[in-house]
Amino acid sequence: MREITIVPLQEFEVPLEAENIRPDIFATLSLEEIRDLEVWEGNRRRYLSDLFSVAGNDGTGECLIRLDGDFSRVKRIGEGMREGEILVRGNIGMRAGSGMRGGSINIEGDAGDWLGREMRGGSISVKGNAGNYVGSRYWGERCGMRGGEIEIEGSAGAYLGDHICGGQIKVKGDAGDFPGASNRGGAITIGGDAHLPGAEMVSGTIVVKGRARVLPSYGFQETAEIEGQLLWKFVGDLVEKGKGELYVALVEDDGQLDK
């Protein structure tokens, strides 16, 4: 596979928007053409090569993009991508892989907010932590992530998988407040703790292997074994006549909250 390596030439004072950093766009372009792609530095239109060094195989063809360095202020990388791979040897900024349909993004550091927003396919993995709104919907829309997989080795922020309608999210660490809100068919697994999972969930599943506070609008059903762990199984969210399944290892009760 063709490899292109991109390295920031400087620290970015304001965030960039670089939705053109996308393997399926690169695939049809020569190195020179890639360097001429548009990026936005705040309200300034720039060439990719103004801000980054771009090196690698010339010619065209399926593409692996290596991002070396700190991309935590570079937004929209891999937005809408359909194929190819992005390998990030550092952190990545907001909205990475949003609306992505295929291919993969592998991040060795942390990811910013809105990772995989409205994702439809492909896979994203994060070695570090991810921010808020992973796999969520855009404001006012009915669906967030509809397909694909997101895996986070560290923790995720609040509103994980908000309005998820399909696909899978796995977080090894904790999730913040309201993971899986308005879930309509997605699968979320959280290795650690979470607060009020599955608010207004209609269908789908959420597994919390650590501790979670469970909404009063969830009905307890039974205990169930998942991957060798005994979990409490709830169904809800009953305020939406939901049939979503929520599994929690340790249910936080009022006593704990008081402390």
Binding site: A199, P216, L257
Partner: peptide
């Protein structure tokens, strides 16, 4: 920090599902 839970509980009662609620909600 318990507003959400209390509102959900009220929605349960208004929706006719009060019997499914625990005896206490967020205290």
């Amino acid at each position: 920090g318990t507003d959400y839970e209390v509102i959900s509980a009220l929605r349960m009662i208004v929706g006719g599902n009060g019997d499914l609620l625990p005896e206490r909600v967020a205290g």
